[in-house]
Simulated scan of single mutants.
Amino acid sequence: MTEPVVAPGRARGGRRDEILATFTRHVAERGYDRANFGDVANELGMSKGTIVHHFGTKDRMLAEVQERYMRRRLEEAHVLLARLTAPEQRIAAFVHAGVRYSTEEPATTVAFQREVVRLTDVPGMATARAQRDAYRDLVVAVLRDGEADGVFVPGDARLRSLQMFGSLHWMWTWFDPAGRLPAADVAAEFCRTLLRGLGVGEDAVLAAADPDGPVARCVAEVCAPRT
């Protein structure tokens, strides 16, 4: 898969996508502050002026990386919520998907996660910030629905969402796709820990966390890389 994913309605291919994919990888590897037009231009054998022509500023490039990433995540989340009805399945789906992104789209995922703090106050990030908030609100709504249905024990849904995102969004600092545990097993362990903490019955926990189970299969289908 070529990263980042091309936004809907935009022609695929060409130098613009090549520039953005290279910039995304540099941000993932070095961080935003150390990524620069000169290095991207040198790697691609073009002038910095070509990059400026396509994007204008480095902030605008990062904003587009963030917006493309979250647009895709929101699309997937809505499909998952439409296909899965049980609260524990829906929460597990968010976890399976979050871990999956670290292996299926490592550059865009790491670039998003390590620079997500910039969504707070950097000018031009309003769209990406709203997308991130919309995704969070989906998770919070599932947590509240699960509590209202008696599936989850009472608690602070917003705080629980932060706990879930905290475990997923810092994976880039320690997770090695070629390491001791495959991503599917990491997702299953995260699911079991989270769902047990929410008070879900053990049979339902094991079914939702199962890396070969219906929830994981649904996530694999919905979140499959686009070619």
Rank of each mutant, 00 (worst) to 15 (best):
C191W: 13
S47G: 14
Y135C: 02
F94M: 08
E67K: 08
R180Q: 11
T109W: 06
T57S: 15
V99E: 08
R217V: 03
R136L: 12
V222I: 11
A21M: 07
R60V: 07
D145S: 12
G13E: 04
G124N: 11
H26D: 15
R144H: 05
V40A: 01
P106T: 00
E64A: 00
V186G: 00
A111H: 06
E67L: 07
A28Y: 07
R118A: 02
G199L: 05
G146N: 09
G213D: 13
V6M: 06
W172Y: 15
T85A: 13
D203G: 02
L44K: 13
V110G: 01
F94C: 03
H53F: 15
R158L: 10
E75Y: 04
W170S: 12
I19Y: 12
Q113F: 07
V219G: 10
K58D: 07
A82D: 15
A63Q: 10
D203F: 00
K58Y: 08
T103F: 05
A93C: 09
G9E: 03
G179T: 04
P211V: 00
C218L: 08
V151M: 01
E3N: 02
D185E: 15
D210C: 01
Q163V: 13
V142S: 08
G213C: 02
V5I: 14
D121K: 11
E43H: 13
M164Q: 11
A188P: 12
D185S: 10
A93N: 03
L62M: 13
G38A: 12
A216Q: 06
L81R: 07
T50V: 14
A188Q: 07
V219E: 06
A7R: 13
R196A: 07
V215I: 06
V110I: 06
G38L: 10
G166D: 08
G38C: 05
D59V: 02
L159G: 09
L119F: 06
E29T: 05
S102P: 00
V27A: 03
G166W: 07
G124L: 03
L80R: 08
E189Q: 12
P225K: 01
A97N: 10
A63H: 11
F37M: 14
E221I: 04
R158T: 04
R196S: 14
E147M: 15
A21C: 01
V186R: 11
L206D: 11
P4W: 04
A7C: 04
A184M: 05
Q163D: 11
T127C: 02
T173R: 14
R60C: 00
A82L: 09
R10Q: 14
V65L: 10
D59N: 13
E104V: 14
H54R: 08
D145A: 02
R34I: 01
V151S: 03
L168F: 09
V110D: 04
